[in-house]
């Protein structure tokens, strides 16, 4: 398990990194962020870039800033930094809750938020957070900067809207409106493993009824999925266990056939999505005001 030969560059700036990527042919270069997903693939020779562009050391991409009511997070901010950030704990409890479910501290010490988003693993936590929080992903390319909404960023299994010469530079996470309740739950075979299935939920209560409900499930499709049909069923209704049960059932009926593997059959994943949605709604409602 030793990587195939590749060239390595550690550009001194984001601009330089974009230029390097632009100069490389398609599929020749790969961006190395924290490496916690890419390095195993390199060691197994499943990823075989000719050039690795290492952006993990770019200080200009390592920050957690308040931006308006939300947070702007540099793509090379480690999960560990997010986990330990008081700002994140206070302002983005859902993001914090998701972070501590990712791997272990030894992985989070290297793994970055940008790396996770760009890897777009359908069972990963961060894409689900991005969808649930309505995050925006800022990317830098040869033609400058563009901002992609989370719902447009994640395309399918391990595929994002990033163009070959583009680099994800920042994740903007808006603040949850006051009184919003949230939940982030997953079922994994062991703590720290990729989720078999998971659900991120946010909702508010307006005059005793659910509002602005967002339900995102992950691990069950080719990417994290926001499920409108279930959300619509909840909005405008009183938060009862019966309602949440119906919403979970609805969700499990409308999602496409999930993946089946040795850890879980498709039917099991579908049912987990139901259960986690139901439990997530109840938890979010209990935190909402």
């Amino acid at each position: 398990m030793k990587p195939a030969r590749f060239d390595y560059a550690a550009p001194g700036s984001l601009a330089e990194a974009v230029t390097l990527l632009a100069q490389s042919g398609e599929d020749e270069a790969k961006i190395l962020a924290g490496g916690q997903s890419l390095m195993p693939l390199l060691n197994m020779r499943l990823a075989r870039p000719q050039l690795l562009v290492d952006v993990s050391g770019l200080a200009e991409l390592d920050y957690i800033r308040e931006q308006g009511a939300g947070l702007a997070i540099g793509a090379m901010t480690t999960k560990r930094a997010l986990e330990q950030s008081e700002l994140v704990k206070r302002r983005q409890p859902l993001l914090h809750a998701a972070t501590v479910l990712i791997g272990h501290p030894q992985i989070r010490n290297r793994g970055t938020i940008g790396g996770s988003m760009a890897q777009a693993d359908p069972a990963a936590e961060y894409p689900a957070v991005a969808l649930a929080m309505d995050a925006e992903l800022v990317v830098q390319g040869p033609d400058g900067e563009r901002c992609i909404k989370a719902e447009d960023f994640f395309v399918t299994y391990l595929t994002t809207a990033l163009e070959p010469a583009e680099i994800l530079s920042e994740v903007r996470v808006p603040e949850l409106p006051a009184g919003t309740g949230w939940s982030f739950r997953e079922v994994a075979r062991r703590h720290g493993d990729f989720a078999v299935a998971g659900a991120a939920v946010t909702l508010r209560l307006e005059a005793g009824r659910c509002a602005d409900t967002r339900i995102v499930v992950f691990g069950v499709g080719d990417r994290a999925l926001r499920v409108d049909e279930a959300e619509q069923l909840v909005d405008g209704e009183a938060p009862t266990s019966g309602l949440f049960e119906r919403a979970g059932t609805k969700l499990s009926e409308v999602i496409e056939e999930p993946l089946s593997d040795l850890h879980a059959s498709a039917d099991y994943r579908r049912d987990l999505a139901r259960v986690l949605t139901q439990r997530g709604l109840a938890e979010a409602a209990s935190r909402a005001s």
């Binding site: 490496g35 390095m39 195993p40 060691n43 690795l52 501290p105 030894q106 010490n109 290297r110």
Partner: peptide, 8 residues
């Protein structure tokens, strides 16, 4: 603490 197998 980091994995030295996951770093160049």
């Amino acid at each position: 603490a980091i994995r030295s197998c996951l770093m160049l």
